[in-house]
Amino acid sequence: MKSPLGRALRQSSLLFAVLGGGVACIVAGMTVTSIVMRALLSRPIGGDVELTQFGIALTISLCLPWAQLHGANIIVDFFTQALPERATRRLDAVGALLLAAMCALLSWRTSVGAIAVREAGETTMILDLPMWWAYASLAPGLALTALIALVQAARCLRGGDLIEN
């Protein structure tokens, strides 16, 4: 993506992926620490499962844009290998549009869910953390993935490739 929009999407998705990787490393460190504490002291980190669930959901959400930008999401091309390049590009565009619609819908609904859960005052069982934090943290990654997929669909419909080299 060589346009200003493309550069902004690349930089944003890289930042999100680095943050997601950082969250994954923190979760991994906490999990190892909790297991060692459980084995040696019979006292794991309280709420480690809740924190792991939040952290991994956030990691996935933050890494989705980078994966979509680089075509690292699953593509099944067994049945389309023999198709002409133009037909393949159109199918890629349809797939990108469907992904954009799904991620936009998920981003919107997690945002609405965050508001509803916040108003309800729902918290986690063990740590009593506000549940809306988890919902709200998923929306930005999903929204960025939707935007990237939309740009990719437009590129395919103009005759370009899904992934820009």
Score class of each variant (00 low, 15 high):
124 T>C: 11
10 R>S: 04
148 I>H: 06
160 G>W: 13
128 D>W: 13
14 L>H: 14
16 F>R: 03
72 A>M: 06
57 A>M: 12
45 I>M: 12
114 A>M: 08
150 L>K: 06
108 W>G: 00
101 A>R: 09
143 A>H: 01
99 L>C: 07
27 V>Q: 12
53 Q>G: 11
88 T>S: 08
76 V>G: 13
139 A>S: 15
92 D>P: 09
143 A>P: 00
107 S>R: 00
80 T>K: 12
160 G>N: 05
159 G>K: 14
77 D>R: 11
20 G>R: 06
90 R>W: 11
56 I>Q: 10
73 N>R: 05
82 A>M: 10
25 C>R: 05
36 V>Y: 11
32 V>M: 04
89 R>D: 02
34 S>C: 11
114 A>S: 12
22 G>N: 11
45 I>H: 11
108 W>T: 00
113 G>E: 01
159 G>Q: 10
148 I>V: 11
144 L>A: 05
113 G>L: 03
25 C>T: 15
78 F>E: 10
17 A>M: 08
100 A>R: 01
122 E>P: 00
145 T>H: 01
40 L>W: 13
2 K>R: 15
32 V>L: 08
28 A>E: 04
5 L>C: 06
149 A>V: 09
50 E>I: 09
8 A>V: 08
62 L>S: 00
1 M>Y: 03
111 S>K: 11
85 E>F: 09
11 Q>D: 08
12 S>F: 03
64 L>R: 00
8 A>F: 11
122 E>D: 14
41 L>M: 15
162 L>A: 05
17 A>D: 10
153 A>M: 05
56 I>M: 13
55 G>A: 04
78 F>S: 12
136 A>N: 09
26 I>E: 08
72 A>Q: 06
44 P>T: 07
155 R>I: 03
158 R>E: 11
157 L>K: 03
109 R>G: 07
112 V>S: 13
89 R>E: 00
37 M>L: 14
159 G>C: 12
132 W>K: 01
50 E>G: 03
121 G>K: 03
50 E>P: 00
117 V>P: 02
62 L>I: 03
124 T>D: 10
59 T>M: 12
36 V>C: 03
164 E>M: 05
99 L>Y: 01
138 L>M: 14
149 A>L: 04
124 T>P: 10
112 V>I: 11
14 L>M: 12
24 A>V: 11
137 S>D: 00
123 T>D: 06
40 L>H: 06
67 A>W: 09
49 V>S: 12
111 S>R: 08
135 Y>I: 01
9 L>D: 06
153 A>K: 01
120 A>S: 10
24 A>D: 04
161 D>W: 00
19 L>G: 13
19 L>T: 11
163 I>Y: 03
111 S>F: 14
150 L>H: 05
20 G>L: 10
94 V>M: 14
79 F>I: 08
17 A>G: 04
39 A>W: 04
23 V>M: 14
53 Q>S: 12
128 D>A: 07
33 T>Q: 06
76 V>E: 14
